[in-house]
Design a protein around this nucleic acid. Structure first.
Lengths: 340, 340
DNA sequence: GCCGATTGAGATAACGTTATCCCGATACCG
DNA sequence: CGGTATCGGGATAACGTTATCTCAATCGGC
C-alpha cells in the first residue's frame, strides 16, 4: 500500500511546545535534546514522550544563529556535471569531521563564481572550498577581511594570499617528459590548455623548461589554447607533420587527452602519449593510456584539513600545499618512437 | 603585490551597528538594505555610508529564521564525483528562479542517504531533490508529514507517494530493441543492472516484454546483476557464445556500456550495441556508440518546476512525470548481424 | 482654521534555538 | 544547628534579521 503522509497544516512544533506538553521549562527540553546529563530521569522521560507525541524535529537554523557555527562547508566547484573525484574525497573527509559539504557549480563562469561564493558567504557557511577560475577575485577581499575561511583547490587565487592545495604540476610534466625520453623519444609535443589558466601555465612552463634542458627548440613543440576540438586537432596536425614530426605527445588534462585520442583514432598515428590526470576512459583505449595521476584523495583530505585549521585558527599563516602526482604506465606512453 | 586581507577580530558588524553609526533606527537600516522606497534620500545616504564605513555584510541566517524561507534547495545525489548532467540542468533552472541548489552525495549508501537528507531537513531547506537508492525510505515519512517538499529524480521513492520525474525507460528499451530488429538482428541480448534498482527493473521488464512480443525465449537473453566487471564480462561471454549467440547487445546504463565496450575491445566481437544513456565516451569509440539518450535538461527543469510547485502548493496532488528519451544512431547500433 | 488622511520613520516583538545566570532544595561539615 | 556548597531545574537574554504596529509631522479639503 503506497503510503501518503499528510503534510501538517501550520507551523511545526518547537521546543516551546514540547516544554508545554511535558510540563517542564524550555531549557530543560534543550538539555534533553542535547543529551545534557544533568536532567533527572523522570523529566527526561516526560520530554521524550512529548517529543514523540508532537513529532518535534529540531530546527538548526535557530541553532546556527545562536551558536554562530553552521557545521557546513561550501564547495564552489567548476562543474558538478563532470568527473570530480576530489569532491568525493572532500565530502568523506568532512563527514569524518562531523561537517557537511554542500556543493554548487560555477560552470567556469566568473560572474557565476562570484554569485555562488557570495551566496555561501551570506549563509555564513563555516568555510568555503573554491576551484578558482579567472584572474579577478577582488570580490573576495572584503569577505576575507570580514573573516571568511577559504581554501583554493587545484589552483591558487591569483593576487590574494589564501590557502591553496594543488598537484605538483611541474614534477608531473617533468616525470612525463623523462618517461618518454627514457623510452627513446626525442621529439615530444605538448598539447595544453589556455595558459591564462594557472595550472595550464605551470604545466606549459614546466614543459618549456624540459625542452630547454634537452637542448632543443622550445615553442615549436608547445601548443596551448582553449579546449576546442578544432584547435586541438589543428595542433596535433601541426605537431605530427613536417620534416621533424613529434613521436610522442603529452597532454595537459583529461579533456585534452580525450580529444587527442579522438584525433588519433581517425588518423591512426602510432604516437606515444602521456596524459595529465587520470579518467575512466584511460583504460578503455588500446593501448591503455599512460597518465600522470593526481592524488585526488590526498588533495581532498588536505583541503579539508587546511580549511578546518583556517576556521579554528584564523591567524595561521597562509599555506600552499603541492600534492605529489604519480605516473601510471599503462602502455600508451611506453611505445618506442615510430621509424619515419 | 599579493594582497593579504587581515581578518577582523571579534564579531562582524550587524544592522544594529549600522543604525548606531548612521544615527537611525534599526528598522530604517533594514528598509534601506531591502530597497524599501519609503525611506527619504538623506537617511538612505547616511545608512549607505555607515554600511561602507563598517563594511557591513548581510547575514542570511537571521533572515532565514525570521522569514521561515531559505531560498535553498538541497540535492541529494548518488554521486558528485561522476557524470551528472541532470544536476547542471537543475542548478540552472533553480538559478533562473532565484534559488540556490546545494548538492551532497549519498554515494549509493542507504545510511548515508538518510544522513544527508536528514541533515538537509534539519537545515530547513525549502525543498529537496533526491536520487533515491535502496527500498526503505521510512525515514522520510515523518519528514514528509512535517511538511518536507521533496521530488524524486530518476526513480520513484518506493512505498511512498511523492513527486517523481524520470525517463521513459520502457519506451527507451522498446526503441532500442526495435532499432536493432530494423537492422536485421533477431538474437538480441540485454546486459542490465541489479533488478532491485527501480530503473534496472523497469528496463529489464521492458526488454522481456520485447522478447515475448518477438515470440522468442525470454530470460536466456537477459543478464542482470550488480555492476561488477567480472559479472558483466561473464554475462557477455555467455550471451555471445553457444549455438545461438546474440548478434546485438543492449546495455542498461552508461557504466554497463563502458564495461561492455571494454570486453568487446579485448575480444573483437563485431556485435551491434545500443547503450542506455549517453556519455562522453560514446563518441570516442569506433564506431561511435548508438545510445538511448535521456533528456537531462528536461528532467532537471521538470524537477525544479515540480519542487517549486510542491513548496508553493503543498496540497497539490502527487505527480509522476516520465520524460521522453531519444535514440542517437551513431554507428554501433546500425551494423547488420554478423554471419556465423 | 480644523480635521482627517497620508507618509516617513521608529519601537518592539518574532523567528527557535542555546548560553548565561539565578533560585531553591538538599547534603555535609564544623 | 547553622552556614556553605552542590545540584537540578528554571527565567530570561542573545543571536541578527524582518514584521507588525504605532507615532508624529505634513498636507489637503471643507
Amino acid at each position: 500500500m503506497q503510503e501518503k503522509p499528510r503534510a501538517r497544516k501550520g507551523r511545526r512544533p518547537t521546543m516551546v511546545d514540547v516544554a508545554r506538553e511535558a510540563g517542564v521549562a524550555l531549557r530543560t527540553v534543550s538539555r534533553v535534546v542535547n543529551d545534557d546529563a544533568t536532567v533527572g530521569a523522570e523529566l527526561v522521560e516526560r520530554v521524550r514522550s512529548a517529543i514523540a507525541a508532537l513529532d518535534y524535529r529540531p530546527d538548526e537554523r535557530a541553532r546556527h544563529l545562536r551558536l554562530g557555527v553552521t557545521g557546513t562547508l561550501g564547495a564552489a566547484v567548476r562543474q558538478l556535471s563532470h568527473v570530480n573525484p576530489v569532491l568525493r574525497a572532500v565530502e568523506r573527509a568532512a563527514r569524518a569531521a562531523g561537517l557537511m559539504v554542500l556543493a554548487a557549480s560555477t560552470e567556469d563562469d566568473e560572474k557565476l563564481e562570484r554569485h555562488v561564493v557570495e551566496s555561501m558567504c551570506r549563509r555564513r557557511f563555516d568555510g568555503i572550498l573554491l576551484e578558482p577560475i579567472g584572474a579577478d577575485h577582488g570580490y573576495l577581499v572584503p569577505e576575507l577581511a570580514a573573516g571568511l575561511s577559504l581554501v583554493a583547490v587545484d589552483r591558487p587565487v591569483l593576487g590574494l594570499e589564501v590557502d591553496c592545495v594543488l598537484s605538483d604540476n611541474v614534477a608531473g610534466i617533468e616525470t612525463a617528459f623523462a618517461h618518454l625520453v627514457a623510452h627513446g623519444h626525442r621529439r615530444i609535443a605538448y598539447i595544453g590548455d589556455d595558459e591564462r589558466i594557472y595550472t595550464a601555465q605551470e604545466r606549459a612552463t614546466a614543459f618549456r623548461a624540459c625542452l630547454r634542458a634537452q637542448g632543443g627548440p622550445a615553442d615549436a613543440m608547445i601548443h596551448t589554447g582553449p579546449i576546442e576540438r578544432d584547435r586541438i586537432h589543428r595542433a596535433l596536425e601541426s605537431a605530427l607533420s613536417g620534416p621533424s614530426p613529434a613521436t610522442a605527445v603529452i597532454t595537459g588534462n583529461a579533456t585534452l587527452s580525450v580529444e587527442t585520442v579522438r584525433w588519433f583514432r581517425d588518423h591512426h598515428d602510432d604516437v606515444a602519449i602521456v596524459g595529465f590526470d587520470d579518467s575512466e576512459l584511460a583504460t578503455l583505449l588500446r593501448p591503455d593510456l599512460t597518465v600522470v595521476a593526481q592524488d585526488d584523495a590526498a588533495i581532498g583530505d588536505t583541503a579539508i584539513t587546511m580549511l578546518r585549521t583556517r576556521i579554528a585558527e584564523p591567524a595561521t599563516p597562509v599555506r600552499k600545499v603541492t600534492v605529489p602526482v604519480t605516473l601510471q604506465a599503462r602502455g600508451s606512453g611506453e611505445t618506442p618512437p615510430k621509424r619515419p
